[in-house]
Design a protein around this nucleic acid. Structure first.
Lengths: 385, 385
DNA sequence: AACCTTTAATTCGACATCGAACAAAGTATC
DNA sequence: GATACTTTGTTCGATGTCGAATTAAAGGTT
């Protein structure tokens, strides 16, 4: 993810970890003189400072550069229908605190955002740091350009709402909004040093969504609707009616909601998908079977889009990705069903981010958004409060 | 499709149609001074010359620029198993001649390429022009980087063959090779002034393949295998065995080969898909029904990838796209099956290029390849032989 | 200790692009 | 037909990037 602004890219890289000028030049493929010039500017602006010397590698040791402003924080939020994760990250996208709060989207945007903003303020008070920017993952389509939620099936009353504006009003810093699966895809891509430049990230929790990375960039489609696979037709769901009006959709058989429903039909009453996952961990055979079957059906649907999109990696995130039977079922179906050329070198892997991929992606976009604000240097050069 | 080389982009634009400097600057979003500098260089190299004056638009009239070397031709070839189209295009990608010859891929690469090269030489003799470059569409996967054909199911004996090298050896000019559906997608994208930046192009002839444009660039996937939808599972094909080893693949019901087979099973013996299309034009009810059903099944499979990829446009090319029942069937299924957000603003349209999209895409890549050769200016400034 | 090798960082000239100002060559208006 | 206006194209200074040469600061060798 290049920002187009070289100074911003350099600053971001320095924020991740102190580095020397020559390391920056090599990593970013730029001339040493170019890096030197940028560093001179950034130091003059008070954004970067020289630290100690890097260990010599047989020659003159380099001088480590680090960002001056270390207490800046971005608040990142992952919204569900009943819960939200609220976290604080630094400019290197490292998450420092991550708390879960209870919300209810049915209460509407204003009340919900206020609950979230209160938690952000509480975290800042207890953990310190100055808030610079906010990013939020929405479980529904988001028109990123106009920054509004579009027809979210699981969030009635949120259509056309500008959640970013509500957050900005309450917290007083710039905010960005995007779909949860998109941000999970971005986060997973950023987390992995060896990530393929084309990947599909599945977010499997109560619902199932996917995010797409194409050519190393987040791909959102022509109407911000990309990544839907829940309405792929699968034979095993042929007789089930879907909320979309058709029959046989994946959603009716492979989502967390469907798993809960199926267990209920089998006489096992469970509250939510987390309870199911506990049963799976405890070795309950019925729960295990239902989760495995959901994984098989997802794998079946995924094989279609893998054949079409030919990604190098498929990442599984969300609550269900914690169940190894689920991951194994998806993987075996994808490898069995896809064409040999599509599976050559294909990796199907559960998230390595402890299900923080969405938050990391949100942090990335929030930081980029912040650094693209015209008034940036002033904010940054303020001493920490 | 930007080449990264500004001079090349400017030259390409001038080749399309004489333009003035200021029009170039506006179209390409560059400063007038930048264009002036480039034009000075290109004129010094003998590649561009000033023609007459453009009509005044209320002020000083512009001076039209055109390319000096107007007789340069690229040969573009579209290969099938039994036929090939061999054509000559100019630097503006306009196709001047297009002939069909009989080949047989079973004869192997050397013999087949020699037949094609002979036709290219014959066209040059009869129509004039100097050959600058060659591009060829292959009905199978092509590793563009290593420039070899990979495991083409319809071309046994061509695995790992470098068709480009054979063409270069025979014709003595640079050659490029790519998959036919990829080039059709590129050609269709280039043909349409209002093309969406994300599109799926279906090439439906004897087989069915798709090419993908993502963010205005041709997308080829991680192993050059992108665009396969023929192994999507469709209910109507549930009992049919596919060459891939699974059952229920789209290919067994919606391809030209399947249509021919189905008509045979219904007691109507036909030679190939072109014969079927003639019957459809003549109003044969059985042929009509089979083609319509094939379109419905393709539309069903397409709806899955449209939901996933959320393109702005879907283009139908290949022999079957000439049948309006086929196009209508695809369109109705896509609109019926896809999510409202994915079909908002979605266009599903038959090719407008008279099935020359693949050739146009091949011309594009061949010209870019040519212009990126280090020895370019010398070649171009030679007077026409 | 003197010298060579290796790596780090800067200096400086070349080049591409931009934007603003300017010159050129028409049309429109009175 | 004089003047104002409009559009085209060039000139010129500023900026950003590159690459080669140079300086800086270590470690290793004899």
């Amino acid at each position: 993810m290049s920002t187009g602004d070289l100074a911003v890219d350099v600053l971001r890289r320095i924020a991740v970890e102190p580095v020397t000028r020559s390391a920056l030049a090599k990593e970013m493929g730029l001339a040493p003189s170019t890096i030197s010039a940028k560093i001179t500017d950034l130091m003059a602006a008070g954004l970067v400072e020289e630290g100690g010397a890097a260990p010599s590698r047989g020659g003159r040791p380099g001088r480590l550069l680090s960002i001056t402003y270390q207490t800046g924080r971005v608040a990142v939020i992952s919204m569900g229908a009943k819960h939200a994760n609220v976290a604080l990250a630094d400019l290197a996208r490292t998450i420092h605190v991550n708390t879960a709060i209870t919300i209810d989207v049915a209460q509407g945007p204003e009340a919900t955002v206020e609950l979230i903003a209160a938690e952000v303020r509480s975290l800042l008070t207890s953990h310190g740091g100055e808030l610079l920017s906010v990013g939020i993952c929405i479980p529904g389509p988001v028109d990123v350009k106009r920054r509004i939620v579009i027809a979210p099936s699981r969030m009635p009353g949120w259509h056309n709402q500008d959640v970013g504006a509500l957050l900005e009003k309450s917290l007083g810093v710039p905010a960005i909004t995007d779909n949860d699966a998109n941000l999970a895809a971005l986060g997973e891509y950023l987390c992995r040093p060896d990530a393929a430049s084309n990947s599909i990230t599945v977010l499997a929790g109560t619902g199932v969504g996917t995010g797409i990375i194409a050519g190393g960039e987040l791909y959102r489609g022509s109407t911000y609707a990309s990544g839907d696979i829940t309405h792929t037709k699968v034979e095993a769901a042929a007789d089930r009616m879907c909320s979309c009006g058709n029959r046989g959709c994946l959603e009716t058989i492979a989502s967390g909601a469907a798993i809960v429903r199926d267990l209920g039909a089998a006489g096992i009453e469970v509250k939510d998908i987390f309870e199911v996952l506990e049963m799976v961990r405890d070795g309950d055979p019925t729960a295990n079977g239902v989760v495995r079957e959901a994984g098989r059906q997802l794998g079946l649907a995924l094989s279609t889009v893998v054949n079409f999109f030919n990604p190098g990696d498929v990442y599984l995130t969300g609550a269900l990705s914690a169940a190894s039977v689920y991951v194994a079922a998806v993987r075996s179906q994808v490898y069995e069903r896809c064409l040999p050329l599509a599976t050559a070198g294909l990796r199907v892997d559960a998230t390595q981010s402890g299900n923080e991929a969405g938050l990391i992606g949100a942090a990335e976009l929030a930081i980029l958004h912040l650094l693209n604000q015209p008034s940036l240097p002033a904010r940054f050069s303020e001493p920490a409060g």
